[in-house]
Nucleic acid binder design. Structure first.
Lengths: 189, 189
DNA sequence: GTCTATAAAGCGATAGAC
DNA sequence: GTCTATCGCTTTATAGAC
């Protein structure tokens, strides 16, 4: 498939999709050249560090997207309950109702975790921290907010695994709905 | 590390551990020879189909273990509540309190899913089916039992992802405890 | 059954023309 | 910026000695 791009910025979403589907080790330069339509010359022009730099750029891009569209809104929306609702809506859309894998989760469950552990860990830590703080603002006790945040993140990651493992994408949305229901605050705010 | 083995049967647990840590694409014959202490000659003697046959053997072994120690007890234990408790205890032990990855989940979130999808899907389908049936026996309505089974499996898989992604193995046990608590039946049986 | 040597293919990466 | 050709290296797999 030929697709013309001319900037490093434009190729990152395509790389992200490939890494999501194939994993880091499963992604070869051959696959990348085929799917992006760019030759190795162009790729190494954009990413002198090669495949590793491509993955780093994609990981940074994903991390940045989540910080902007998920983590910051959790912290900054005054209505905590609405912020949590908005997070679930964004997550459902981002992961295409279960059709799209989580790149951070894919890396975490592969040997490539050794290389990218810092980026992956930062992502999950930030998400857990900001979600737990928002759940606390919504009325959950501190300990319960932290444990519930872990349960929600596990539900999201596990829902994506099940969607692929069962080859049944709607299971992701069903699990997401259930963990969202767990987030209804115990007392009105 | 040198470790002497002489039978195909003996090498499978070692292969399983390697595939769990490195994934399918991330596992090379070099790593396998180093960690098992066997040369390529021995490995191809046991597994003429090479790396792919090694993975198939490991997948079948894992599937068999779960059918014997998790799925069958769920179906056959008369006390449904006790059967579910036993399942959680076995899962906690099998996954070493979060230190060990789930091979089926690792494959499901990699490009190797294309090759092994049938085995992976059968595993998750069987687990979900037998857990849902047991939850129904424990007092949950059919629809709720099915959805709860999905939530539990997602919690297990997601808990394992978080354990690796956060580099915090205890998070697996915490998530497991929470989904176990969700399985307390709504009415006494 | 296990080893070493080796083959054939694919890999990531580089060089240089345009 | 993009291409093609090519370089080493690693990969999976095979052959044959012991």
């Amino acid at each position: 498939m030929a697709r013309l791009v001319a900037e490093r910025h434009d190729v990152i979403p395509q790389l992200a999709e490939i890494f999501r589907e194939q994993g880091y080790e499963g992604t070869s330069l051959k696959i990348i050249t085929e799917r992006t339509g760019l030759g190795k010359g162009s790729l190494y022009h954009f990413f002198p560090g090669g495949k590793r730099e491509m993955a780093e750029a994609v990981l940074d891009d994903v991390d940045g997207w989540f910080r902007t569209h998920i983590f910051a809104p959790l912290r900054e929306t005054t209505d905590a309950k609405a912020a949590i609702e908005a997070m679930f809506a964004s997550v459902e859309t981002y992961f295409r109702s279960g059709q799209r894998a989580c790149l951070m989760g894919v890396i975490a469950s592969s040997g490539a975790m050794d290389i990218f552990s810092e980026r992956v860990q930062d992502y999950f830590v930030a998400w857990k921290r900001d979600l737990a703080a928002t759940l606390a603002r919504a009325g959950f006790a501190g300990d319960e907010a932290s444990a519930l945040a872990e349960e929600v993140l596990a539900g999201i990651q596990g829902g994506l695994i099940l969607a692929r493992g069962l080859e049944d994408t709607p299971v992701f949305t069903r699990v997401l709905e259930r963990v969202k229901a767990r987030c209804r605050p115990p007392r009105p705010q």
